[in-house]
Structures are given as structure tokens and as C-alpha cells.
Design a protein around this nucleic acid. Sequence first.
DNA 1: AACCACCCATGACACTTGTCATGGCGGGTT
DNA 2: AACCCGCCATGACAAGTGTCATGGGTGGTT
Lengths: 226, 226
Amino acid sequence: MTPASGPASGPASGPASGPTSASVRPIRVLLAEDQAMIREALVALLSFEDDIEVVAQVGRGDEVAMTASRTDPDVALLDIEMPGLDGLTAAGELHKIRPGTKIVILTTFGRPGYLRRAMESGVSGFIVKDSPADKLAHTIRQVMNGQRVIDPDLAAAALSEGGSPLTPRERDVLAASADGKTIQQIAAAVCLSEGTVRNYLSSCIQKTGARNRTEALRIAEERGWL
Amino acid sequence: MTPASGPASGPASGPASGPTSASVRPIRVLLAEDQAMIREALVALLSFEDDIEVVAQVGRGDEVAMTASRTDPDVALLDIEMPGLDGLTAAGELHKIRPGTKIVILTTFGRPGYLRRAMESGVSGFIVKDSPADKLAHTIRQVMNGQRVIDPDLAAAALSEGGSPLTPRERDVLAASADGKTIQQIAAAVCLSEGTVRNYLSSCIQKTGARNRTEALRIAEERGWL
DNA sequence: AACCACCCATGACACTTGTCATGGCGGGTT
DNA sequence: AACCCGCCATGACAAGTGTCATGGGTGGTT
């Protein structure tokens, strides 16, 4: 009952002529978004564009690569927050096996660290859900033209921040300290001595400029250092 | 260019006959959701329903009541996470000035505490964004018929939990402890002695069964005790 | 009046956490 | 070989945090 709910419903009736590009064959889009209602709403939104066709939908990050191989999309539209595999990792995986497929990240949080990781994963576009709706179709057409689309404010913020100063191990320990876990629990989770955990956390706190491990975790998350 | 972007675009051509109800006049819907792209995508989704018309969109909670007075909707569809005023408070406000308007909460997180607060605010429907897309239109029609629509799992979870055991002051202090704040900072924020803050936090930790204030905060948030 | 719940505060104590110095191990650089 | 960096660990100390007992004040209930 919703539009384009099948994997291949065919192009819109008549010779498709998109608002900007005049290609006969519509742009084939894979959409990955975990919340079903939002996913189908985005499909509805794109169904109004004659030159764009959603050929596949997935609700988990770990289904992106396989579904792309099967449905051969031109553009993959990926949310970041997804079960199974986050959108950024899924982007890297997809870019490795299908370098020709353009990738657009569509996310709620415009964190500079996300953007940096996205650029390292071969992503062509990065837009936030706060943007007006027409930005979505517009971005899809632009990346198909070989352009890169990045929110200007976000790009500036990402450039002003350097890369993560945390060593891999520090990162692990800090990440394991989420949800108010005890030093004991963290030590058990990462298989380390409690003293070592405290040392790592201490240096995380130093490097983030925080006063707690809780605050350090929050700061590191915002900066995309996890 | 997006469907139903104007406040009053009129009913669909021909005598409207909805899939379930056979009313001539379409159901007038007010949509409140802060993320512009999602909001317009939901509008696109609802535009496929002949018996439903989105007559107003807002991106802030504090605009709900005023816009409802101006546009006279039958149903208000409210997200919870919004700037200005959260959706639950906005629901209470709206229910007070327009008790006839049905209210549906559409949210990302299905927390039992949210549901309880929603019920106290005169809400008729409560659905999560994980639901399939057709649930949205279906829910709108059901609440128009005077029915209540609540996710069964959520209802069970909310019933199994009692109300908040936290006293108002405990709630304040715990809420002020977010983001890894120090006891000093919390005390300054709520204008209390440091010792008193520790006492309140201690009882919060007791009542939540947590081992930290960090974990206590997380638990209280999940249960909707804030 | 007696009682209870909540509010606020203080002080003492024990536990957890953050910091620092120190040292051994492995790998890569100069 | 000397050096630096990251990894892991220990021990000691200081600071922060959680717990408990205690007490005074307010307002509502029985």
C-alpha cells in the first residue's frame, strides 16, 4: 500500500525526466534506516521524484553490503545509528566491495567526528535530518554527478578539530566505561587489571580535559573519538 | 513541491472515501516533529491517504498550542524530543485548551515512563517509530473513532512498573547530575549544600538499585522518573 | 498532640576513583 | 644501540564519592 514497497517496482510511468538531470534510467537507491516508519516515510518522500527509485530497504547495518550486491544500487543512503553494524562501518564495507556505488550518510547528529570517519570510509555525501526535505533528493542527484555534498558548518567544525588523541586501548577502556560501570566491571569487560584500567581512564580524562570518566566519555563521544 | 505543504490544500479530488472510515471531510492533522526532513517525509507518507490531510506542521513544542488554535486540527501528532517544549508537556497544554483534539504521541523511545506521563496528559494514542508505516494512518483513524491506541508491550511494561519513588527534590538533584557533573557543580546548580546533595544522590542510588549516580541517572531516565 | 513525610544540613567513616612514580615488555625509528 | 611509544602492571597517596547517624524545620494526617 505504501509506494515503492517492493524491491523493484519499475520506473514511474512515462519517460522519466527528473527536475535537474534528464536521464532516462532513474537513479537506483538503497535505503538503510532502522526505524521502519521513518524508513517508509523517506521512501514516500523520494517517490515524488521521477528520476529516483528506491530499489531496496534494509533496517540493519549488516545487511547493507549483501543487499547492495543483490540489487545493484547507484546510491546507498545510510543512517548511522543502526543495529547490527553502524552506518559508518557499513559504509566502509560497502565502499570496499562496490567502490562505484555512491554513499550518502543521513544522520540525526552532526558530530564532527562522524564526518571525519565518514570521509575516511569513502562517503560522497553527509547530511543531517534537520535539513529541509528537498535537500535529500538534491544530494542524491549531486553525488550521482560526481560531486561531494557536505554540510558547510559541519565541515568547518571537523577541520578545526584534530584526530583522536586516544590510543586504541584507551579508546576501548573508555568505551567500556559507559552506563556508569564500576572499575571492576570495566576491568572484567576488557580483561585488564583494575589498576591498569584506572591508569588508562586517567589519561583519557587528561586528554579530554574532563574531570570524570563520565564527562570524558561524553566529550569523546561528541568528538567522535570512539 | 512537497505534497500538502500548504496549510489548506483541500481534499483529494472526487468524493473522498478512506480505506476504513467513509467520511466526506478528511481528518485534519497537526504534525509536530523537530527534524525537518523527517517531518516532511511523514507528510509525504500521509499524503497517500485520501482521508487524511496535514493542515499544519511545527518544529517546536511551544508552537503546538498556538498553531492548533489557528488551524483547528482533529488530531495532533506529536514527537517527544523537541526544542522549546517536549511533546508530553505540549500534549498536556493542548489537551487543556482543546480537549476535543485527539493527541497521538509518535516517538523514538518506547519508555514506560513516557507512556505513563502521556496517559496523564490526555493522550489517545502512543506509537513508536519502529512500527510499520501503515500503523500511523491506522492509528489516526482509530483515535478519530474514539478508540485508544497503545503498543501492547509498552502498556504491559508500564503497568508492571509503579510510579516514581523519587521525591521531587531527589528528582531535581539526580537530573542535575547529568553529563558527569561534580558534586560541587550539582550543589551550585540546585543551590544546596554539598552534603545534602550527596544525601539525596545516595537515596536515589538506593531507590534505583544502582551503584553509582551515573547508573542511577540512566535507570531513572529509562523508567521515566525524571 | 503525636505522627509521618519531606526538606535541609553537618560530621564522621569507608569505599571508590584519579593521580603519580616506577618498571618490565615488545616494536619501530634514528 | 639508544630511543620513543604503546601496552600492562603494581603500589602509594590524595581527592571524590557513597553511607550512616543525627538533628532542626515545615506541613499534613490521625
